[in-house]
Amino acid sequence: MTPNRAHPDDAFINAVRTRFPVEAEVDHVLTRKLRRRSGPGYTPITLESLCTSAAGMIRSNIGSDFTMDRPRWLQGGASKLQFAFDLTWTPARADAPITTAMVLRMEPPEAIVETSRRREFEMLQAMGKVVPVPPTYWVDAEAEHLPYPGMIYGFATGISMPKARPDAPRMQTLFPPELRAPLAEQFVSHLARIHTADPGPLLYFEPATPGTNDALVRQVQWWRRVWEEDRPEETPLIDVAARWLIDNAPLLDHVSVVHGDYRAGNFLFDEEKHCITAILDWELAVLGDRHQDLTWSTGTAVSRVAEDGTSILASGLLPVDEFLDRYSAASGLSVDPVRLRYFRIFNDFMSTVHMLATAPRVASYGKTHQDVVVAWSAIIGNTLAAKLRDSLEELA
């Protein structure tokens, strides 16, 4: 009997959980997604009602002595709902009330990438000692107060795209020459710090062990499971790619925090001071192999051709070879061409799952506030699948 993915029953849910073992918190989030899939789609949420929910969340953490002012929606992103506000409150050990600019980041009923607010919140806390990130305040991981799981963190100043190119795609920004050198230096050095940092004990991440490929195989199983949960039809290429990735998963030589989406558009910067002010969107962070970030940051999806018409600039900032050389010097870690090839296929595999399976399902069932953006993203699913096929054929 063909499973009904729009209304998954317990048998289907239990089958995918058994077939594709993943980290405990990832399993929790994906299982919750399936159990609530039969529910209603996205219904527009008023700013007033969301403020009321956020106030309840804050009240449960600090009591009633606070006020919220200047609530406003934030634009950008195809995955989460976000609104900003100013909170006047008295933090612990403070002598008088202060006003803090904050952001509520909340899931829709289903997102193009289903992730854990607990993991994102915890990783932001860990990385706050390493690189510039927004400060974290509170998390409502099971939507006890909010309409959907969410968290509150500090409002980070800065912009994500140069003012001279406001209409450029966020993932394919070509930074003006005067910004490239200073931002490129920080972009590389921050990634080196992330990959060499000890995040300390983490509750919602399972460890990665040097000398094994267990953590990487769990990641492949994660996205293979998402494909099984969301796919509109069978596509043998996904099975072939998943088997290849598991069979060829390299042994881990160094455990790194992997951001998972480190690129232009996911950091803010001060255009006048030429300074990166915050690194955002840690929802895909894992413990694993640094080459996963290196291939994503230098991949074709986030790179741009320079003014000379030939040079490929990683994340619109600096030539790919220079990026890798400077990264190795800053981190003290080697860059392995074999691992780079592997993770380029891994990234194509993951992106194909996002765009060929999850995006059309989320958009067609009205599960997101960004239905137009997500539907547009689904258009490139077949292009990504063709790229994945070509990459596998090259290694055959």
Score class of each variant (00 low, 15 high):
P132Q: 06
V372N: 13
I13K: 12
W222E: 06
T2L: 11
V372A: 15
V258G: 06
G316V: 01
D27I: 05
M350D: 09
L324P: 01
V22H: 10
H259M: 04
L395N: 00
P71N: 13
A15T: 05
L284Y: 09
A168L: 05
E394R: 04
A301I: 02
D10F: 07
P199M: 11
E25N: 04
S311C: 04
A301D: 05
M68Y: 12
E322R: 11
A6Y: 07
R37G: 03
R304V: 11
T173Y: 08
S334T: 15
A54N: 09
M127T: 08
L318Y: 01
W222M: 05
R218H: 06
A15R: 09
L203G: 11
V258S: 05
G316I: 06
E110F: 01
A156M: 01
D167G: 03
A54C: 14
H195T: 07
E206Y: 01
W244H: 05
R72Q: 14
T368K: 10
V374L: 10
L251Y: 04
T88L: 01
R36M: 02
M106H: 05
K33Y: 10
V258F: 01
T295D: 05
V131E: 02
E144G: 15
D390V: 02
T209K: 14
Q172H: 11
L340D: 00
L174R: 02
A184P: 03
A94F: 15
K129S: 13
L340Q: 07
R59P: 03
V131G: 03
V255Q: 08
H369W: 10
V220W: 03
P40Y: 04
Y262I: 04
I312Y: 07
R72C: 15
A197Q: 08
H145M: 12
P3T: 01
A54V: 14
V226N: 01
D247I: 01
N4V: 02
D281L: 07
I379H: 15
T88G: 07
I58F: 03
P91L: 12
L280G: 06
A92N: 10
E206D: 07
L179H: 06
D27M: 07
P40G: 14
V305H: 06
